[in-house]
Amino acid sequence: MQRLKSIYPEYSDRVAFYAVGSDPTEGIATLESYRQRQGYPWPVAEAVGTSLQDLQVQTQSTKIAFDAQGVIIYRDGYGQGSEASWRKVFQDLAVSAKPAGGAGY
């Protein structure tokens, strides 16, 4: 997640970013404490209900990105992805947030 620190600020106004706990035994307090210790600028969250199963998140460091229409444009697992590839994902997400022609939602 450290590598995302340099990317997130550039797109925080156009792309929602959530660091979600992948371990059901860790509550939101634990996750928030960890975030503060690490100095992460993004919000942390815990999955509610069957969300982890529904999204088939089985390991930590799973990444899922979906555009403004809800279509998944990127998914990767543990140890996958790079700063360059994530930057590209954020760029694509930002484009989907602002359609061509300047028409706002």
């Binding site: 929602a16 959530y18 992948s22 930590q60 460091s61 990105a65 403004a68 947030a97």
Partner: peptide
Amino acid sequence: QVTSQELLVQHRPTFLFFFASW
């Protein structure tokens, strides 16, 4: 709470990073 439905209504592209503190 934040739902995916809310994000879609707001047309917010989203990046989810799943992690553990250990």
